[in-house]
C-alpha cells in the first residue's frame, strides 16, 4: 500500500512539474512542488544527524579502525552546531542594538564565522588542492599513446596544457599575431580545441544524456521503473 502511494505521489508531482512548464496558470504549482522537496530535504537533516551520531558512536564503542576520527567528527559536529545555534559571539544588529544576538550567525567576529574562516575554508581548500597532485599521478600512469585515438588526445592535451600558460606564448609567440599562420599559435590552437572539437564532442554527449534523462524520467513518473525504491524485480 505504501509503495502504491509513493508511486501515485511520484506520478502527481512529475506530471505537475511537466505541465507547469507549458501551461501558464499552473506555473506556480511546479515551484510549489520544488518547495515541498526543499522542506522534506531540510527535515531529513535531522534524520541524517541522528544517523551520523549513531554510526560514529557505535564505531567509538567498538573501537573500530579509525575510531579516533569518529570522535573528532562528533566533537566538531557538536561544537559547530552549538556555536551556530546559540549564536556564540554574535553582536546585535546596528538596527536593533538592544536585542542581544540579533546579528547573523556568520557575522564577522562570531564563533561560527571563526570556524568558517579558520577551519572550514582551510580544510576544504586543502582537499580541493589535492586534485593537482592526483591529476599529476593519474597523468603519469594512465596517459599513454596506446593507439591513434590516444595519441591524438595526447597531442591535444599538450597543446591545451601549454596554450593555457605563458609557455605557449614563448614557444609559438614568434608567429606574427596578424599573419595567416596565427592559428598555429598555441593559445589559438588551444581555443580552437576548446571551441570546436571539445564543444562538438560535448554537444553530442549532452544530447545523448538529455534523451537518457527524458526517458528515465518518463519511466519513473509513469511507475515503469521502480527499482530505485526497492521494487520492480
Amino acid at each position: 500500500m505504501s509503495r502504491q502511494l509513493a508511486i501515485i505521489v511520484t506520478l502527481v508531482a512529475g506530471v505537475l512539474m511537466v505541465v507547469s512548464g507549458f501551461i501558464k496558470p499552473t506555473q506556480g504549482w511546479g515551484e510549489d512542488a520544488a518547495e515541498w522537496f526543499n522542506i522534506l530535504a531540510a527535515m531529513a537533516f535531522v534524520l541524517g544527524a541522528a544517523n551520523l551520531a549513531k554510526v560514529h558512536l557505535s564505531k567509538i564503542s567498538s573501537r573500530d579502525a579509525g575510531w579516533g576520527f569518529s570522535a573528532v567528527t562528533l566533537l566538531a559536529f557538536a561544537v559547530t552546531l552549538a556555536v551556530g545555534l546559540f549564536k556564540v559571539g554574535v553582536n546585535p544588529m546596528p538596527a536593533f542594538p538592544d536585542v542581544p544576538m540579533s546579528g547573523g550567525k556568520d557575522a564577522e567576529g562570531s564563533a561560527f564565522w571563526w570556524v568558517y574562516t579558520y577551519v572550514l575554508s582551510s580544510i576544504t581548500a586543502t582537499m580541493f588542492s589535492l586534485l593537482a597532485f592526483y591529476v599529476a599521478s593519474a597523468a603519469f600512469r594512465a596517459f599513454r599513446a596506446k593507439n591513434t585515438e590516444a595519441t591524438l588526445l595526447l597531442v591535444a592535451a599538450f597543446i591545451v596544457l601549454l596554450g593555457r600558460t605563458f609557455a605557449g606564448v614563448v614557444l609559438t609567440g614568434w608567429i606574427p599575431a596578424d599573419s595567416d599562420w596565427a592559428f598555429l599559435r598555441f593559445e589559438n590552437l588551444s581555443t580552437t580545441i576548446f571551441e570546436v572539437f571539445a564543444s562538438a564532442g560535448n554537444r553530442a554527449i549532452i544530447i545523448g544524456i538529455a534523451l537518457g534523462v527524458a526517458a528515465t524520467s518518463l519511466k519513473i513518473i509513469l511507475g515503469i521503473d521502480r527499482s530505485y525504491m526497492g521494487s520492480g524485480d
Binding site: I209, T216, D225, S227
Partner: peptide, 21 residues
C-alpha cells in the same frame, strides 16, 4: 559515459519495459 549510465538499468535487468524504453 553519459547515456550508457541511464541504459544500465535496462542492460542489467533485461526487462522488456526497460529494453523498450
Amino acid at each position: 559515459i553519459g547515456e550508457e549510465f541511464f541504459a544500465a538499468s535496462a542492460y542489467l535487468s533485461g526487462e522488456p519495459d526497460q529494453m523498450g524504453s
